[in-house]
């Protein structure tokens, strides 16, 4: 699997996801600078976390309208899988590749800690190595991760099985407290209609090395390698 990571000014988790992808696939991902007009041939496009363009205007808004994102959207519409993590999720919503928007955390604070996520479906490229209902522990690091969409959009996401992950307790319960940032219906990550685009706020790439305190994110990358090899 050849992955390409799109790097914007202000991206800062590109090396984390690079390492996770390389460990899973044995192949070095490509890094694509936002000014590059040519997007190389790739099996997977990744938009990493960070603070692209300093979060000016709205998180992800400037990056979403940069020329390289037009190319990413074109590839996505032809079926190339796209993974957006944290700021990458914000960029995908601003670019219209995923519905909804990420608002400021309900606490008004930057959250940097491990959280528990319930896997909502194993029926996707990204979650095939997990079981539906399984609980994993991965870090979050964001100020604006409070998922919002109108009730009709939320209903449609649920009906079509497009919710990928929800914030939960270690036992998989959806309590008010476990929904640390106030996301609508505890949503931590969603797919597009074709389930070829995934956006999520938590950082599975930072849970792929035992030295960093957990490896629950490994299966996401292993599943992608298996599906896209």
């Amino acid at each position: 699997m050849q992955a390409a990571i799109i790097v914007f000014p202000g991206s800062n988790r590109e090396q984390d996801v690079y390492d996770a992808l390389e460990r899973a696939s044995g192949k070095k991902p490509l890094k694509v600078w936002h000014r590059d007009s040519e997007l190389p041939k790739a099996d997977l496009l990744v938009i990493p976390g960070g603070f692209s363009y300093g979060d000016y205007l709205r998180c992800g808004a400037m990056a979403a309208h940069s020329p390289i994102m037009r190319e990413v959207s074109a590839r996505a519409s032809r079926g190339t899988p796209v993974l957006g993590i944290c700021n990458g999720f914000q960029i995908l919503t601003e670019a219209g590749l995923l519905p909804g928007v990420l608002l400021t955390n309900k606490t008004l604070k930057f959250h940097c800690k491990d959280v528990h996520l319930r896997i909502e479906t194993s029926q996707s490229l990204f979650t095939s190595r997990y079981e539906a209902g399984q609980v994993i522990r991965v870090p979050v690091a964001h100020h604006d991760g409070n998922y919002f969409a109108d009730p009709a959009t939320l209903d449609r996401l649920e009906e079509k099985g497009l919710v990928a992950f929800r914030y939960c307790t270690p036992n998989g319960e959806l309590t008010e407290e476990s929904n640390h940032n106030g996301s609508a219906r505890h949503i931590a990550g969603i797919f597009n209609e074709a389930k070829t685009v995934l956006g999520l706020m938590p950082h599975p790439e930072d849970a792929t090395d035992p030295l960093l305190g957990g490896t629950d994110g490994q299966a996401l990358f292993a599943g992608l390698v298996e599906a896209l090899a």
Binding site: R58, A61, T93, P99, V101, F148
Partner: peptide, 9 residues
């Protein structure tokens, strides 16, 4: 519509 506002919110 394209940039200054996100009309979702």
């Amino acid at each position: 519509r394209q940039l200054l506002a996100n009309t979702v919110i």
